[in-house]
Amino acid sequence: MPELSRRRALTAAAAVTGAALVAVPAARADDHQHDSHGSPDSFDEVYKGRRIQGRPTEGGGHHHGGGYGVYVDGVELHVMRNADGTWISVVSHYDPVPTPRAAARAAVDELQGARLVPFPVG
């Protein structure tokens, strides 16, 4: 994990997302997610000034998260579910975390305000 704590959010200074300068406090959604045997719950929150969302997807061919999509400011983050139920993403590929929300937050930490490049489909 990066040296920054979640609460020491970068907030406005680094949160340049596309053209917009977003100044929103760190995570506001309650983290009550359960990693059930099926697909994890959806989530939608602003974390360190970035909107992160996760939701089950409808049979998308390139979703290695097992039919689960994660988005940072609307751009899909490639995530993958490991055999033991942990998750990784393409920007934090070698460091499994417990949930897709944790993978999204790890991605925001890693990005330090940078935009995500959509991964190629097909």
């Binding site: 940078a114 935009r115 995500l116 490049v117």
Partner: peptide
């Protein structure tokens, strides 16, 4: 230059 990348940097 980092050309093949997953973010804007």
């Amino acid at each position: 230059a980092v050309n093949v990348r997953v973010d804007g940097r």
